[in-house]
Design a protein around this nucleic acid. Structure first.
Lengths: 206, 206
DNA sequence: AAATAAAAACCGACCGGTCGGTATGTTTTT
DNA sequence: AAAAACATACCGACCGGTCGGTTTTTATTT
């Protein structure tokens, strides 16, 4: 997590350095292939320093994931605040896809790795997949709100939420692996648009 | 691939044993974590026998992938033969999702692994991602056919194809990692249905 | 049909290298 | 001076792949 009272000034700086290096290393090689030595070299420190600040390789991995999820949550909250109804919010979310690609550019495998590692280690699962339940619930609530406010048809909320998430996840993952990720940014948007077209309730119909 | 003239009768049997064992091992542990020793133990043979039949760990991996893709292609061809128009075919394809989950049950990580490995090794990329271009093209043609035959609206064929594939991939991957994969089988179907609802051209409108 | 040679299949000990993590000592800050 | 930060050499486990030798099958000859 992110709150430490560093015993020394250097400490915080080194920790940040290690984290940045780890992100680079994991992105470049994936979790298993990235070595602690590689991370240390990138951070310009020694192995001793590394293990002084982190108890294990897995621990930085989890911290990186935690930070990433926190960023994601903040982004969602910001969007939610500025959208005036549910379809608009869903559109805004899908519109932020290209931005995600920008961020992820050159860090292809790391997102996939989160999944793969999660499928193996229970601790990883807890940290990676479990949060997804929150997003499912969040989108489900959103759809429910949309139905309540009359902007969406009376669809089955959870199933619809899973569909929307699937659309997003599919476009994201394929975009990560494609050569021309630019093209894929709009796929997510257009896909959500098609789905919305089927479930939206236009004002004039009310 | 699949055509060998086995020098001895035993050979083919052992090769099959190794392949089955490798599939189990990769599914259980993933590509990197699965060891050749593990595969040998599962197959009930020695390391020497393994390397007598396959030059490397990667080579069986590629053979497994190749077989998997061939199966998939056969399935697609069978569907295509029995569908009378494009929307029906797309529905049939999405309806076969639950079956895929059945097959994949308990082999969670292997599909993800194909991707992760592909992102790293050029040889893996060639074998894994490159074939996807064929499927994109196939679905694009399909959509184009649908437009021609009047069963689909005049959408942009390739973009629509990418959307359909994204929907499928997203539902598949999430289903693989979920605890109740049963639920996810229908997500793919319903998602495709929603999309079709937006792009289909009903007979009475023609 | 038996004997024999040759080739294919198989075994398991072993090698070279890697990697996460540790132990111990040195430098720097408080 | 003492505690925190850092460095370096090293350990033990693991793993893909090799190697020399043995067993089993097939082909050939007698």
């Amino acid at each position: 997590m992110s709150e430490f009272q560093p015993k020394q000034e250097r400490s915080a700086h080194t920790r940040a350095e290690i984290l940045a290096a780890a992100q680079t290393a994991f992105a470049r090689s994936g979790y298993e292939s990235a070595t602690v030595a590689e991370i240390c070299e990138l951070a310009g420190i020694s192995k001793g320093a590394f293990y002084h600040h982190y108890p294990s390789k897995q621990s930085i991995y989890l911290e990186l994931l935690h930070d990433w999820l926190a960023d994601f949550d903040r982004g969602l909250l910001a969007l939610r605040a500025s959208a005036e109804n549910v379809p608009a919010l869903l559109r805004a979310m899908s519109a932020s896809f290209p931005a995600i690609f920008q961020v992820a550019e050159g860090q292809l495998p790391i997102l996939l790795d989160f999944w793969v590692q999660a499928a193996r280690d229970p601790a990883m699962w807890e940290a990676t997949i479990a949060p997804f339940a929150r997003y499912y619930a969040l989108i489900t609530d959103l759809v429910q709100d949309g139905i309540s406010e009359g902007s969406l048809q009376a669809v089955e909320a959870r199933q619809t939420a899973l569909i929307l998430v699937s659309m997003g996840v599919g476009a994201l993952l394929q975009g990560l692996l494609a050569e021309d990720s630019a093209q894929w940014g709009t796929v997510g948007q257009d896909g959500i648009e098609l789905i919305l077209h089927s479930i939206e309730r236009k004002p004039e119909e009310r």
